[in-house]
């Protein structure tokens, strides 16, 4: 506790760094995984290959990935961009399949009815497929969010500051309180993201809540 009272400005700053690394990576993962997942769902043959490749991304060891990315993208090794790209790669690995499954979870009869009453292909995507895919998609995003927040700590190994810095620094200098602070702050951040996503999910899918409301009293009477 003593350590924390003396060092809290640094912890706040590292938490901010941690946020600035993880949030863009999560957003990028979603923005890329949704169209790729949709493509994989629409073109199953191509999709199989895409899903396989995406899954393999997760098998790339972190440290080599952090070294390859600067070479491929021509950016400095110790930059936040390197971290964000690496985290997005892992995020994609987790989310592309879920995104494809999310579109697969949409009742084809609903989609067809939407087409039959006159939705354009783009209209079907925005007004029908995407909103109805949200519940499954969100389950995947929650996993990605928590995993990303925890993976950010690896950045400390290549010198990109985050709450992971507390872990490496604490180990090297033998300060258990610093390590504990790093672990707890990372977990707290992950839980915060998760809570925010659950709230967003409720706001985005009001129809599922209403259905629950209706089904509960009925279930009691029967």
């Amino acid at each position: 506790m003593n350590w924390l009272t003396l060092n809290w400005p640094q912890v706040i700053e590292l938490t901010r760094d941690h946020l600035l690394l993880s949030a863009p990576a999560i957003v990028l993962s979603v923005l890329l995984a949704v169209p790729i997942g949709r493509l994989a769902h629409r073109r199953p043959r191509l999709g199989g290959a895409v899903l396989g490749a995406a899954g393999l991304l997760y098998a790339i060891p972190a440290l080599p990935l952090l070294i390859i990315i600067p070479v491929l993208f021509g950016i400095p090794l110790r930059s936040p961009a390197t971290m964000i790209i690496a985290l997005t790669v892992y995020g994609l690995a987790l989310l592309v399949r879920t995104a494809a499954d999310a579109f697969g979870s949409v009742d084809p009869r609903v989609r067809e009815a939407a087409v039959a009453v006159g939705h354009s292909p783009l209209g079907v995507f925005w007004r029908v497929d995407l909103p109805l895919a949200v519940p499954v998609l969100l389950a995947g995003v929650r996993v990605v969010a928590v995993s990303t927040v925890s993976l950010v700590t690896i950045g400390a190994l290549i010198g990109v500051p985050s709450l992971g810095t507390l872990l490496t620094d604490g180990f090297q200098r033998g300060i258990p309180a610093e390590v504990a602070t790093g672990v707890i702050a990372t977990m707290a951040l992950a839980l915060l993201f998760d809570a925010l996503l659950i709230a967003a999910g409720r706001a985005l899918t009001p129809w599922t809540a209403k259905r629950r409301e209706r089904l509960l009293p009925r279930a009691e009477t029967t």
Binding site: V110, A116, G118, V128, T205
Partner: peptide
């Protein structure tokens, strides 16, 4: 096709309503 479908009323067996609207 899109304009055509909008100009025709269509009723399906399972309603075909959008569950999220």
């Amino acid at each position: 096709p899109v304009a055509l479908r909008r100009s025709i009323g269509y009723v399906l067996q399972h309603g075909g309503l959008l569950p999220h609207r």
